[in-house]
Amino acid sequence: MSAIAARRRTLPGFGLTMGLTLSWLSVIILIPLAGLFLKSLELSPEQFWAILSSRRTLNALRVSFGLAFAAACVNLVMGSIIVWALVRYRFPGRRLFDAIVDVPFALPTAVAGVALTALFAEKGWLGAPLAALGIKVAFTPVGIFVAMIFIGIPFVVRTVQPVLQDLDPEIEEAAGSLGASRWQTIIRVILPSLGPALLTGLALAFARAVGEYGSVIFIAGNLPNVSEIAPLLIVIRLSEFRYADATAIAVVMLVVSFVTIFAVNRLQRWAQSRIPAR
């Protein structure tokens, strides 16, 4: 930015604030992340591949990605039901439940972790009846799944809710007046309008669940190859001073989450472009 151009902005301080922003961003975010990728470049492709294809790593990645996707799908369905109830119906305690949706955002993950474990342990409030039915949740992959559902639910609800709220009532009336049944209206008119928001919610819930650590490790049991998540394996490799292994796993996870976020951004922009100008 040349001095003349900077002077020719009406409001002052662009050079200073932009400079500070870029410096601080570099120091806190960009340099540390670049360090991670640099470190991974120290590995030869063969080494990198050997780490990733080891049975324990593969299983950890499979557990993290597989269960995160399954949990995100549950969140998509249950999140839609919750949004529909909150936006379209009036029932006692509606505002309270609306506020409660944010609890997983606000509750520290370690607290969520110990609470879910206590709840679903064999002697817990929910664990005991489930154990009587022969279902074991805590210290199994099911426990991981439960924790991932817990932390993912607000992502779906909070992305879809505003879109459903802003949906013009007239389009439903138009569909109804053209002879569509209620079910046809929902499937053919409302759902397509919510499509981008639903996909965005799914992707955000997935991205969060893949990287989740605190709320999962207490309930997971952490049995290698069975209920060990990828972030935990990173921590274990670090404590063994196997930095290369930790780095390789981290790079894979980072790339996946960046791709997810990139897809979400694209999705949002596409959804924006579909909204007709008013």
Partner: peptide, 19 residues
């Protein structure tokens, strides 16, 4: 870029400083 930390696993956020 400012949003990046939201999409980084907490464990990795610690790891980068260890590295």
């Amino acid at each position: 870029l400012i949003d990046l930390p939201f999409s980084v696993s907490p464990v990795i956020s610690g790891l980068v400083f260890v590295l």
